[in-house]
Design a protein around this nucleic acid. Structure first.
Lengths: 367, 367
DNA sequence: ATAATTTCCGTGAACGTTCACGAACTTGTA
DNA sequence: TACAAGTTCGTGAACGTTCACGGAAATTAT
């Protein structure tokens, strides 16, 4: 502008000098190219009704000015592309990536964007995650670990699909038939001849549990059951009681290393244990280590059944028998449920639509 | 609408009848509550200058109408909250979640949102992923597997941080010192007394390779090296040549199962192999399986070194020695680099700032 | 009682884009 | 030449929110 030389805006436009280089707008491009807003729009969006030469000139001008259309202005006038929030407690836990991958894939197929929040590492809760996502998304899918009502309140009318917890007032929910899983596992172990069973539960309450129960009723067996606080754990305790089989229960933080230690103690207290079911495959990996530590052969001396069926199981030694969940299928169920909610074939305001999925026993070496 | 009763909007507002229930705006709320736009804004955003009673009344009205402020209108007037795109080839590969988790955590700390794209499953490329993300984000971090220039062109002035490939015209890049990694691994194996080494490379070119070379120069050893196409593979081939050590190279698709098969063939062709380095830990798991299949003891008969240091390695039997990368640290580096680019302390237009990280040998049982 | 604050609330403007429409220019045809 | 039809481009309006400012009402001070 102030220079007398002719070649203004040579290559870089703003950026080098002065302040933070105020963002170029469509008007800047229009002015620089000697056309109107609408022509710039036509050039940038591959619309008809513009001469090829003009289009190229405008595009070049836009490039030189570093022009990027404001997604806000565009969204405001065109109506939102839907974007869904995905709340995950811990991507580091191999259970979740498989699920998340599926959600992202199917959401992308529908033209949605996925805003991901991996809230566990910051020590946040599921509700806080929803709070963080809320202003940015049109819907949320998530493993919140409870408080579905509160989360739905934050989202207002926008649909919320929660997993592995009662839907409550949430628009939709996907749960798992743990009673069926427990029955399947226990029957398999019994058929195998196991008589001294144990279950390793995860420590830390999952807020999905209906009541933080101490199982005040008749103790189903000799094992300690007081610590059982997850819904999975309750299902196994009840399943064992129903089947009239002894079940020792230990509780461990959700990691292989922790499960290894807990299992060592369990084996000290119950040396005759000959069958163990574990909260999930990751912890089962630690259980296998502990059994190896103690010199026991798997499955000869003690059988092990994991849960969830993550790919890791196949790589362990021995390969892990597990109550598998097709995590891509879980993701598909969540996305399709949300799709129904969004397109209105399902009513978000109505009572939460619940979908129940079942684990399937995958026999490998460990049991 | 058709009813004569007076109680309009009782509890649910729109939604039940008619069409897709046009979205409620701030003006609807203002009218329903008998106040102005600005008062609604004040009520919804916890701003001062409003009576508590009014605030509650407005909030209740908003709730009843299912009002959710438009993120586009808000963004337009307030200036963008920055949101970054995260392009990941395959969340199912345990390498990436650890990285992604770190990125999400640190981005959230900065108040950014993360739009995730897991582009591999759809058969898309990194560039297509960037294309998909571009209209929605202010910057991109990603493993693109090449074509950084093209991706940067799509983003215009918006910063792009690429990983594990030359930055090219991208604003920033993070690469790994594979020459150092190769040297470390080979030296360790030699010191261990291994004499017949092998390297299992990943099939499929990573476009980051400077030239799709057939290594036309003098063959560094007896092993077949023609298939080496990844930068990692080249580093190992060169490292072996420099150290004057024989190195057989096999190529396998990126999965444990595939690596298992390839390793079986390798062992048939080179039965004397007593040390194997693998492209990554996931494939190394398959290599361990193959060695077990062949009746070889690890590390007594053959040592194995993996690469990248994912948590899986500790759970294998034997536990995997690996050239570990602190993936959370990689995420941190990417985010901090991007932060510099965004806040302007680094110049996005300038030549890409490259950062080189090093693998560290973590000794466990397998070597 | 009047003035000086303070509290509360409303109105014009602006953010950057696309849509709907119309004007100007070009080409083809009688 | 004149008219129709097509091509290319520009202008007002609208999307829904917040900001800056100003006015009215309620409260306190003089």
């Amino acid at each position: 502008m102030t220079t007398s030389s002719g070649d203004a805006s040579s290559g870089l436009g703003p950026g080098a000098p002065g302040g933070p280089a105020k963002r170029a707008t469509i008007l800047d491009v229009a002015a620089a190219a000697g056309v109107s807003r609408q022509t710039v729009t036509r050039a940038m969006n591959a619309m008809p009704g513009i001469r090829q030469e003009t289009r190229e000139r405008v595009q070049e001008t836009a490039r030189q000015l570093g022009y990027t259309p404001s997604r806000f202005a565009k969204g405001l006038v065109q109506g939102a592309r839907t974007s869904v929030g995905l709340a995950i407690p811990d991507l580091t836990n191999p259970y979740y990536p498989a699920f998340a991958s599926s959600v992202v894939e199917l959401a992308t197929q529908r033209g949605w964007h996925v805003v991901m929040d991996d809230y566990g590492h910051g020590g946040a809760t599921g509700v806080e995650s929803v709070q963080h996502l809320a202003p940015q998304v049109d819907a949320v899918i998530g493993y919140l670990g409870g408080a579905a009502d509160e989360a739905q309140a934050i989202l207002g009318r926008r649909p919320l699909v929660v997993l592995d917890q009662p839907a409550g007032s949430a628009s939709g929910g996907i749960t798992f038939d743990y009673a069926h899983a427990a029955r399947t596992a226990l029957e398999h172990l019994q058929a195998r001849g196991c008589r001294q069973l144990a279950y390793i539960d995860r420590a830390g309450t999952d807020h999905g549990a209906p009541e933080p129960v101490h199982d005040g009723g008749p103790r189903p067996g000799p094992g300690p059951v007081q610590g059982v606080v997850t819904v999975r754990g309750q299902a196994f305790a009840r399943g064992a009681a129903a089947a009239g089989v002894a079940l020792a229960v230990s509780v461990s933080p959700e990691s292989a290393a922790a499960a290894r230690q807990v299992t060592r103690r369990l084996l000290d207290e119950h040396p005759g244990t000959d069958g163990i079911v574990v909260f999930n495959d990751l912890m089962a990996a630690g259980v296998l280590k502990a059994l190896a530590d103690s010199g026991r052969a798997v499955p000869a001396d003690c059988a092990v059944i994991g849960m969830d069926g993550i790919p890791l199981g196949e790589l362990l030694t021995p390969e892990l028998t597990t109550l598998a969940l097709d995590l891509r299928e879980v993701g598909r169920a969540a996305v399709e449920l949300l799709d129904g909610l969004l397109t209105g074939s399902l009513n978000p305001a109505g009572p939460g639509t619940e979908l129940v999925l079942r684990h399937q026993l995958v026999l490998r070496q460990s049991a």
